[in-house]
């Protein structure tokens, strides 16, 4: 029953305290958020503590993984595991967005027309089926966010960033480090400009358009979907920055660079979600 002691001998990491640190961080974050939202003392302090512990955990844990990777501890089987896992992780993120997109579709296709239907006339007299709508109880006028201003520019920025990232990837495969670094820098810059525009857009919406989170379902869905997406762009930019720093330290080879590819998958996913947002939130 002997078997060849092959190159695919399993990798099992050493015992680690980072999972426990991560759990403590999340307990602090949840407790802090509960206290803060209910205006109980020290909520902000606990929340900040949670973020600090989380940051320490992320540095420590990812530092460990990067060290193991650079120490040639990962064989091809581990590489395949990372690929499967990143794919499923992105799928779970897609489903998270599905919940919010589903809410938007339900509200536009079912809830608003139903509130404007004759059966509801006794409750909500004179309410018209239209979009955008802040609902029958709203009295404050607000303006719609138009697609062909900043949102269109943002679409162009993200699509371009997808191209620059692929160009950087080509550089990595062809061992052209300068192309790789410039491509990553461009991608990060485009992502940061996108986020700046998004913040400016929110500022405009609050200051001049009276479009707020409290502006009925239009405000709710607008800020939930774009905000959740913006949070993902922030994560993506952070991950790309880590990759850039690793490139500058000389990490990755033309054959082995799944960290780069995983982040690229994530970035393209964020990109595609934006296209959906652009169409159903801003355009239609």
């Amino acid at each position: 029953m002997s078997h060849p002691a092959s190159a695919s001998r399993y990798f099992v990491p050493q015992p680690s305290h980072w999972p426990l640190v991560g759990s403590i961080a999340l307990l602090l974050l949840a407790t802090g958020a509960v206290l803060l939202m209910n205006s109980v003392a020290n909520g902000g302090l606990v929340l900040t503590g949670g973020f600090v512990v989380l940051a320490v955990m992320l540095f420590g844990w990812f530092g460990r993984v990067i060290g193991e990777s650079e120490g040639q501890r990962y064989n091809l089987q581990v590489d395949r595991s990372f690929r499967w896992a990143m794919g499923w992780f992105i799928f779970s993120e897609v489903m998270f967005f599905v919940a919010f997109f589903g809410a938007l579709f339900y509200i536009r296709v079912l809830a608003i027309p139903d509130l404007a239907s004759p059966e509801q006339a006794a409750l909500w007299e004179g309410f018209q089926d239209s979009w955008p709508s802040a609902g029958p109880g709203a009295s404050d006028p607000f303006s719609k966010m138009h697609a062909w201003g900043i949102p269109a520019v943002n679409t162009l920025l993200l699509l371009t960033s997808g191209a620059t990232l692929t160009w950087a990837h080509w550089g990595l495969i062809a061992e052209k480090r300068t192309q790789l670094i410039i491509g990553l820098l461009l991608t990060i810059a485009l992502g940061v400009v996108f986020l700046c525009f998004q913040v400016y857009e929110y500022g405009e919406a609050y200051a001049h358009m009276n479009l707020k989170m409290t502006t009925g379902v239009y405000g709710s869905t607008f800020y939930m979907l774009t905000g959740f997406h913006g949070f993902h762009v922030t994560l993506g930019v952070t991950m790309l920055t880590v990759i850039l720093l690793r490139v500058l330290k000389g990490h990755f080879t033309a054959e082995r660079h799944f960290a780069f590819e995983g982040v690229a998958w994530y970035w393209h996913f964020v990109d595609v979600v934006w296209l959906g947002l652009f169409i159903v939130i801003y355009w239609l």
């Binding site: 919940a99 029958p136 707020k212 989170m213 405000g219 709710s220």
Partner: peptide
Amino acid sequence: PILAGAVTMLLTDRHFGTSFFSAAGGG
């Protein structure tokens, strides 16, 4: 993730003034 999305909308309805589940706001 669908459940996480649902309770997130509950949370914003509770504390941040959104109207996902309130008919007066169109939800």
